[in-house]
Each structure stands twice: as structure tokens, then as C-alpha cells.
Design a protein around this nucleic acid. Structure first.
Length: 200
DNA sequence: AGTTGGATGGTCT
DNA sequence: GACCATCCAACTG
């Protein structure tokens, strides 16, 4: 069993949101976005990375949040093993020298095993076969749970969404990215950078 | 420490 | 045929 705490998300709206996959209306790829709240929307980007979204708006509105980063809480070695498995299944160049990949992944700090949208999917073995899944079903192999409590509280930082400059104003700059301030597991390359960016 | 470019394929124009 | 809701290695300074 792998569990983790979501520490970074981005909000995407329906067809009116020029940065949303729903901007061109309903297609085969984004059909899950129009499902009921709690539906998983999993898409592939840049030809190799899968990303997990959770539908948030009512059926037919296509609102969803992208899960950008997770703090692994349990099953850490399973998460790490999934990262290795995913890497070895991927690029041909990687398969040529698997030892180096395994070594590199072995050095990743626990907190950074799922510190990016594609890393969340890799670490928790989410792929497009999960597209359309009901994340509110406690019996589902992939599902959301309420926080157990006892965790340090999160202070939320807001900012613009990543990688959507093409959308233009006001969508590109809209403050729709929400992350745990100073949290080690948020995306952004280096944990040190993420921490210092909120220092004061 | 910061920047650049390659990998890689589905989707939309 | 262009464009991506990305990641990482290999550069430069």
C-alpha cells in the first residue's frame, strides 16, 4: 500500500479556460473531465509522461485539478520501486544502461519521489488505464482518502499555473496553482529552491 | 546555480 | 506538421 499527502495542485476550468484541456470542447482524450466529481482524468504529455487529475466540478462542467506533487507517507520503497520500473520501461537510451538509472533513483530523497506531476504518476503507478476511474471509491486500487490528522498544518501559497503561457491573459497568469509553502515535496526542481522561495 | 536541449508520441489544426 | 499541464543530463559561468 502506497499513500501520500497531496501538497501541490493546479486548477483547470472548462471550455472558457484557455489553458485547460477542455478549451477545445469534449474530445476522446479529455472525455473524463466531463464526468462527475471524483473522476480521474489521466492524460499523456510530451509523449512520455502521464499526469493525474481529479474532476472537481459538477458533471458536464469539465473542471479538474492536476495533482502536481505528493509527499509520500507510506510504502516508500514501493514508490521508489515504481519509479525504477517506470524508468526502465521508458526510454530506449535508459534501457541501454539500467544500472545508472537504478543508482540515480536510489539517491533521490524520500520526500522528492513524487515531486512533480509526471513523478506522481510514475511513483504511484498511475497511467491512462486509470482514466475515468472513480477516486471516491474506497475499494478502488487508486483512491482519495481524507487526511488522517496529526500531520503538520499546511500553509498554502498561490501562484500562476506552470507551462500555460500560450493561453494568454488572463488565463496564463491566473493564480490557480496551490502549493504547501516551503514543503520539501513540492515541484520545482530542487527542494532547497522551493524552501528559500518562501523564506522571509 | 542557472540555462539549454533532447527524449518521444498523441492530439489538434 | 506544430505543439504540448515534463523531466533530466549536460552544459556554462
Amino acid at each position: 500500500m502506497r499513500t501520500g499527502r497531496i501538497v501541490e495542485v493546479e486548477a483547470y476550468g472548462g471550455p472558457e479556460d484557455r489553458a485547460s484541456h477542455a478549451r477545445s470542447g469534449r474530445t476522446a482524450r479529455n472525455a473524463a473531465m466531463w464526468g462527475p466529481p471524483g473522476t480521474a482524468y489521466v492524460y499523456r504529455v510530451y509523449g512520455m509522461h502521464d499526469c493525474l487529475n481529479v474532476v472537481t466540478g459538477p458533471s458536464g462542467t469539465a473542471s479538474a485539478i492536476l495533482v502536481r506533487a505528493v509527499e509520500p507517507l507510506a510504502g516508500l520503497e514501493r514508490v521508489r520501486a515504481a519509479r525504477v520500473e517506470h524508468a526502465l520501461a521508458g526510454r530506449r537510451a535508459v534501457r541501454a544502461d539500467p544500472g545508472a538509472v537504478v543508482a540515480r533513483l536510489g539517491r533521490i530523497p524520500d520526500a522528492r519521489l513524487a515531486s512533480g506531476p509526471a513523478l506522481v504518476a510514475a511513483g504511484f503507478s498511475v497511467d491512462r488505464s486509470d482514466d475515468g476511474a472513480d477516486l471516491l471509491d474506497p475499494a478502488g486500487s487508486l483512491h482519495l482518502e481524507a487526511a488522517q490528522g496529526g500531520e503538520p498544518p499546511i500553509i498554502v501559497t498561490v501562484g500562476p499555473r506552470v507551462g500555460v503561457a500560450y493561453a494568454g491573459a488572463p488565463w496564463a497568469g491566473a493564480a490557480l496553482r496551490f502549493s504547501a509553502a516551503g514543503h520539501e515535496s513540492v515541484s520545482g526542481g530542487r527542494g532547497a529552491t522551493a524552501r528559500s522561495s518562501v523564506a522571509r
